[in-house]
Measured scan of single mutants.
Amino acid sequence: GATAVSEWTEYKTADGKTLYYNNRTLESTWEKPQELK
């Protein structure tokens, strides 16, 4: 079967924080998503 690919993209901001963006739900979060833990 196909492996579930994470929908989350990780961005590094200018101040060194990490922003997570979900390509499916168009949601963005500063918290690390469950799927990435």
Rank of each mutant, 00 (worst) to 15 (best):
Y11Q: 06
N22D: 02
T13G: 07
E35Y: 06
E31S: 06
E31C: 14
L36P: 05
T18W: 05
D15A: 05
E7L: 06
K37D: 14
E7T: 05
K32P: 08
G1V: 12
T13E: 03
N22S: 02
E35A: 13
Y21D: 02
W8Y: 03
A14R: 09
K32I: 11
W8M: 00
Y21I: 15
L26Y: 13
Q34F: 12
L19M: 13
S6D: 10
T29W: 04
K17N: 06
P33A: 02
Y11T: 07
N22I: 00
T13F: 14
T18Q: 03
Y11G: 03
L26V: 02
K37F: 13
V5S: 13
S28Q: 10
E10C: 15
T3S: 14
K12F: 08
S28Y: 15
T29A: 05
N23H: 13
Y21M: 08
G16W: 01
T13L: 11
E7N: 06
E27G: 03
A2Q: 12
Y11W: 09
T13K: 03
R24K: 13
A4R: 08
T3F: 12
A4S: 13
L26W: 08
K12N: 06
W8Q: 00
E35F: 08
R24T: 09
E31L: 08
E35V: 08
T18M: 04
K37A: 12
Q34R: 08
Y20G: 00
E35W: 05
T29G: 03
W8N: 00
W30V: 06
T9H: 07
E27M: 07
K12Y: 10
N22M: 00
R24H: 10
E7D: 12
L26P: 01
T25Q: 01
A2I: 13
E35S: 10
S6P: 11
Y21S: 03
Y20A: 00
K17P: 01
Y21F: 15
P33L: 02
E10S: 09
N22A: 01
A4Q: 13
E7R: 03
P33I: 02
Y20W: 15
A4F: 12
E27A: 05
W30D: 09
Q34P: 15
E35D: 11
E7Y: 08
T25K: 01
R24I: 15
A2S: 14
S28A: 10
N22K: 01
K17F: 05
G16E: 01
Q34T: 13
Y21C: 12
E27H: 04
Q34V: 13
K37G: 14
V5R: 08
K32Q: 08
K37S: 14
E10D: 02
L19T: 04
E35R: 03
W30P: 07
Y11E: 03
A14Q: 10
P33S: 01
E27F: 04
K32V: 10
T3N: 12
T13V: 04
V5H: 12
K17I: 04
T29K: 05
D15V: 03
Y21Q: 04
E7I: 07
L19P: 00
K32E: 07
L19V: 11
K32M: 12
G1E: 11
L36R: 04
A4D: 12
L26E: 11
A14W: 07
K32N: 05
T13S: 08
N22V: 01
W30K: 05
A14G: 07
Y21A: 02
G1D: 12
T18L: 08
T25M: 01
E27Q: 10
K37Y: 14
K17V: 05
A4T: 14
T3G: 13
N23P: 05
T9K: 06
R24A: 09
T25A: 01
W8F: 01
E35N: 09
Y21R: 08
N22R: 01
G1P: 13
E10P: 04
E35I: 07
Y20D: 01
L36Y: 12
